[in-house]
């Protein structure tokens, strides 16, 4: 069978490369019985549309942000607890715990997809027009975010106006002031040159940004036991490989940005005043068990 695998990232991105490597290995190990056509750069639609296509079985596989999946399985939102991970490699260790893996068990029932394993992108930073000296400077500002509840809750707690916006529009929106700041990872800040239109880059490392490898539950149900085992293991290994890529590259990207940014600030949880506490209160009500389990996993993997 030729599987269609969709993702939102452009061809040179780490996730797309991982998808292609997965396809190549699957073709080889199955002796040509299976192959994968990768559709990068939102060719088949944005993540919400791809998730729906996975549910109907029109799309077979996807590498997708946990953010999108958490719109259907809300307790996955606990991954986005501000400052849950102390740095990028800690985030990777949290994602490799059994606690994290166990959270994927609910996906077939809640979202119609099978989660094979986690990958990741870089930690979230903030790039802003104008000077940002304290969290108060972010209040009332329009901030571009990836739209999912935990992120919305964080910026609402800061008193900002979180604005969802697709990636291709972000550069212009920041350049012409349609938004005052953006929530973004180091890779894209560097590669897409968002620092060019910014007065302040805040290295806040405030959230991790996990990704998950998905197979349509309908398609999964039609696979043989051996195929499930082979595909599940192989996809998990390739998405997991992206964690190592980001752990290795995060610091070099940050160093490059520091070299060109007008103002570069490293801040921690205390910078965001009571916004972190507000977020915690909201989510201790929304997903108490998952949040506690992930905090414990974070503690166990701290160094």
């Amino acid at each position: 069978k030729d599987f269609r695998l969709g993702l939102i990232t452009p061809p040179p991105h780490i996730w797309t490369k991982a998808a292609e490597a997965f396809g190549a290995e699957l073709k080889e190990k199955s002796g040509g019985a299976h192959s994968v056509t990768v559709f990068p750069a939102q060719q088949l639609g944005n993540e919400a549309e791809m998730l729906q296509q996975l549910q109907t079985g029109a799309l077979d596989m996807a590498f997708m942000t946990v953010a999108e999946v958490s719109n259907r399985a809300p307790d996955l939102g606990a991954f986005y607890a501000p400052f849950l991970a102390s740095d990028i490699s800690h985030a990777g260790r949290i994602l490799r715990t059994d606690t994290a893996k166990g959270l994927l068990d609910q996906l077939p029932a809640k979202a119609g997809v099978v989660g094979t394993g986690y990958g990741m992108a870089g930690l979230r930073q903030i790039v802003a027009r104008g000077k940002i000296d304290s969290a108060a400077d972010l209040a009332g500002k329009k901030i571009r975010i990836t739209p999912f509840t935990p992120n919305l809750d964080f910026y609402n707690a800061l008193g900002a106006a979180p604005t969802p916006m697709p990636l291709p529009d972000v550069y212009d929106a920041l350049a012409n002031g349609q938004v005052d700041a953006i929530d973004m990872d180091a890779e894209l800040i560097w590669v897409l040159k968002y620092y060019e239109n910014a007065d302040t880059v805040l290295q806040s490392d405030h959230m991790m940004f996990p990704m998950v490898g998905l197979v349509s539950a309908k398609v999964w149900a039609g696979l043989s036991e051996e195929d499930r085992a082979m595909i599940g293991e192989m996809m998990a290994r390739h998405v997991d490989g992206t964690i190592d890529s980001y752990v290795a590259k995060e610091q070099p990207w940050l160093d490059e940005i520091r070299g060109v940014a007008k103002t570069y600030k490293v801040v921690d949880a205390s910078f965001f005043a009571d916004a972190v506490a507000k977020w915690n209160t909201i989510w201790e009500a929304k997903a108490p068990a998952t949040l506690e389990a992930l905090r414990k996993a974070a503690q166990d993997t701290a160094q």
């Binding site: 919400a48 998730l51 729906q52 549910q55 109907t56 719109n71 259907r72 029932a109 809640k110 979202a111 119609g112 739209p147 509840t149 919305l152 979180p162 969802p164 539950a217 309908k218």
Partner: peptide, 16 residues
């Protein structure tokens, strides 16, 4: 409904 149909149309939220 979702369990029976794998159709998640009624679970989808708007962004804002």
């Amino acid at each position: 409904f979702q369990g029976a149909t794998f159709n998640f149309i009624y679970a989808e939220p708007t962004a804002t």
